[in-house]
Design a protein around this nucleic acid. Sequence first.
DNA 1: GGCCCCCTCTGGATCGATCCAAAGCGGATC
DNA 2: GATCCGCTTTGGATCGATCCAGAGGGGGCC
Lengths: 346, 346
Amino acid sequence: MERITRISSRVPAVAPTLADVAERAGVSRQTVSNAVNNPDLLRTDTLARVQEAIVELGYVPNRAARNLRTRASHLIGLRMSPVQEGTANAAMDRFVHSLVWTSREAGYHVLLFSGEGPDPLEGYDDLLRSTAVDAFVVTDTYLGNPQATWLRDRRAPFVAFGRPWGDEAAKHPWVDVDGAAGTALATQHLLDQGHTRIAWIGWRKDSFIGEDRRAGWSRVLRERGHPTTGMASRVEDTVWSGREASGVLLDEADPTAFVCASDTLAMGVLHTLAERGLHPGRDIAVVGFDDSQVAQVVHPGLTSVRQPLEEVAIAVVRSLEDLLATPSYVGAGLLLTPTLTVRGSG
Amino acid sequence: MERITRISSRVPAVAPTLADVAERAGVSRQTVSNAVNNPDLLRTDTLARVQEAIVELGYVPNRAARNLRTRASHLIGLRMSPVQEGTANAAMDRFVHSLVWTSREAGYHVLLFSGEGPDPLEGYDDLLRSTAVDAFVVTDTYLGNPQATWLRDRRAPFVAFGRPWGDEAAKHPWVDVDGAAGTALATQHLLDQGHTRIAWIGWRKDSFIGEDRRAGWSRVLRERGHPTTGMASRVEDTVWSGREASGVLLDEADPTAFVCASDTLAMGVLHTLAERGLHPGRDIAVVGFDDSQVAQVVHPGLTSVRQPLEEVAIAVVRSLEDLLATPSYVGAGLLLTPTLTVRGSG
DNA sequence: GGCCCCCTCTGGATCGATCCAAAGCGGATC
DNA sequence: GATCCGCTTTGGATCGATCCAGAGGGGGCC
């Protein structure tokens, strides 16, 4: 009887269902379902008739019903990390954009959730058990980060953006960018410009990512016989720290160029230069890391290592698809190489 | 019989269902459902018994099933606008963060989707008709933007961040920030510092937001009897345009301060100053708009109008709740006032 | 002509939660 | 003691798509 009401009203208040399409096309529900999901199974004329009915009614499959039956939501969970005011952390945003775009092509949408709160794992648990998402993309994989371990223990499907630092036994799929290759690129670029005294400003030693990026700088310099001792500083990732560290290095190590672990630190160097009346690029070269918006708009442009986040997103989604297609999928790691965007600062 | 297999296995491969909890607690399914959704309906001891069973089994309601029955997904759709490389557009990210956080408290999650492609409305349509999302948050409400009109025609629930510019008849809920109040604040601040020749660099005349922000600057200056003619420039929102415009204004109008419609334009002014050996804040004052990360990390800090995006998100979610609770909800508009973050540039 | 096979297509059952109408039950009232 | 009332609790139906087993129909082969 509901059917009758629905048809009699001009503008159906309720969206058409599979049964409506079936009735209109003169076939069964299953045939319509096949027309949508397995068109190959239908005879050509039947398929055409069903598709016509679908268009006429403006039928769109109900997600909830499909999700319930197939036990899949076609949603990927991504946890928003807390905002860092005062830093030039733009990599994440570009990555999210790329991920959304790439997911769409693969038939997935991105579900954002906030991990802030007492228990960072709470959000993961609820979403997973309530079948709200099919898998997660994890972005912080520092050592001791409970997320990766926890997800693995639960056999929750996830792909990490970032290597499982310090846990070689980890057997989950991951995608990462070779930070050392990036800073090596930056260092080599500065050597090509004639610089020989190239300083490093990076993060504290307990940061695996920071040490990785530092390794690229030190390796290239050592290979060419240029000094590294006394040329490096390890500080927190703030503009203020970068400013302090560069001031000390300028006074004590006489560098002509800086390679930094982040654009934030590089901005600190620019502060010091401005305060001392030195011109970035002309007097002292500065290279940052992440190619953030800050690097793009600051005067005279900050040369920076750019992570191929579009490719990362593509690789992440591909891994995700493999993972969801074959539950026993043994994850592989993929390391991508960044590029150097050269601007006025060096 | 499935029940038996499930219980006999140590680690259930399938998540426990409402029926499992009911059996364990010795009540009916509906009672468990009530315990979850309407605890008030249960007698205290029954409630306790059910809750105990829920905890023991680790029961979490299946979203797909709930969504199917209730015809709601508890998801809010947010379209990712295309990335703008080379601009300091950080407002959006802060807003997304705030929205995710606020939504969580209201029991919603944020579904990101990409609107890029031939038809910008396609994403909206599919998500809505497939009942993937309950409502949308729309962020671009410039005149002629088809989204708002289209959504209203479809009676799709949505709340806009941004006024329905040029369409006073629009009757949907919206939240916006008073741009004129922000630039008035900035201009007043510069007057307090002793500046009287204050220039404006904004967007082209067809931008309602740009004209709104410009109005704050011109109103304050006129009230105090200071010049505005020849002191304004309307350009595209790029660093390069800001640099060009500020160069011309410095040559022709002799301003001592700039108020800009965006941080991007303000960065352009900083370029000009750097090229001319002028010091921002000391020689020429510069104020931007949005308090982006760029404003926070650039030397010597860019004074900027800061939108209360956390409050915007809260208001948006509140409207969304009202809207979904009462379908006939007639939207109201809410205009919030920004603040000024003062830094070294002025 | 009879038989078998393959390609299409069908209808009932199912996923797991909520809606709905009604039953059970204890206490208060007459 | 019977009746009524209100608070709890119950079981069947339902949301809309997919899974599954099997029916129907046409062609090829002997």
